[in-house]
Computed example of a mutant assay.
Amino acid sequence: MPEEEIQEAQPKKKKGIMGLLMPILIPLVVSLAVSVGVVMFLGNNTQPQTKQSEQATTAAAIPIKAVVIQPGTYQTFMLKGGKEVAVIDSLSFKVGSDQCRSLIAEKNDEIMDALMLIFLSKERTEINTPAGIELLKKQIKNAVNEITGFVGEKEKQGVIDVYLYIKAVSSVQ
């Protein structure tokens, strides 16, 4: 009988050791698997080169102001027929790059010539309506982008928006 008691006691010890290890091993394995899963799911802290360059590009795309006609300096443009003029108080652009702003300053004469041609094709009734003014702004934007070379894919770095203040349209005698 004492032998039977020894044999029964030994399996109890094995169950006791396994019983102690199992509550420790199971949470350890589960927490290790969850940690690996979280790291794989969230990824690492470093960004690939393409994402960094995209962020640099978007940071460079902050709109910049370029002024062609300073506020308060009235510039007149003859309208179609030569009997009326538009008095422009100010004309400025929101541009997508410093390069475009500097090209606008360099090519001011060409831009003023293009503006003259655009206004010469307009009648008073065309620039007295909101739709007419929007069309005028679009034509100015396209002309300046062509002059500065910001067309096609580079258009986002060129003129983004046109700010035009027409003071008056007057008859010339």
Rank of each mutant, 00 (worst) to 15 (best):
L103Q: 11
S92V: 04
R124F: 14
D109K: 09
F41S: 03
I6R: 14
Q52S: 03
I140S: 05
Y165G: 07
T57K: 15
S171M: 07
E126C: 02
K167V: 04
K137P: 01
K12E: 15
A61K: 10
L32V: 06
Y74A: 14
I26R: 10
K137Q: 10
V67A: 06
V151D: 07
Q139C: 02
L21R: 04
I140Q: 04
P71L: 12
Q55H: 13
E153V: 09
M18Q: 14
Y74G: 13
E5I: 03
M1R: 05
Q10C: 15
I64H: 04
M18G: 11
S121H: 08
V30W: 04
G19N: 13
L28M: 10
A61S: 14
S90R: 13
T50W: 03
S90W: 07
A114M: 13
E5N: 02
I104F: 02
G19F: 11
A33W: 04
I140C: 01
A66H: 01
N45A: 06
K80S: 15
F93Q: 01
E155A: 12
K65L: 15
V172S: 12
I69L: 01
A143G: 03
A114V: 10
I111T: 03
A60I: 01
M78K: 02
Q157R: 03
V36W: 14
I24R: 01
K138S: 13
F150N: 05
G19H: 03
K14I: 06
V68Y: 00
P130W: 11
M18H: 03
G16A: 04
I140M: 07
L103A: 08
I26D: 12
M112F: 12
L120Q: 06
Q55K: 15
Q52F: 04
E110Y: 02
A66L: 09
A66I: 00
L79F: 09
F41G: 05
M78F: 06
I64V: 07
A56M: 10
D161K: 10
V85K: 02
L120S: 14
L103V: 04
F150P: 00
V67N: 00
S31T: 09
D109V: 00
D161I: 00
A143C: 13
Q139F: 08
A66E: 05
N145D: 14
L117N: 12
G72Y: 04
A33S: 09
L103I: 06
P71Q: 13
S97D: 15
E5Q: 08
E110K: 03
P2H: 12
V85W: 06
V29N: 05
K156R: 15
Q55V: 05
D161S: 01
V87M: 09
A86G: 13
K122L: 03
V159I: 13
K167M: 05
I140E: 05
I69D: 02
G81R: 07
Y74V: 14
G82C: 14
I6N: 07
D98V: 02
Q52L: 15
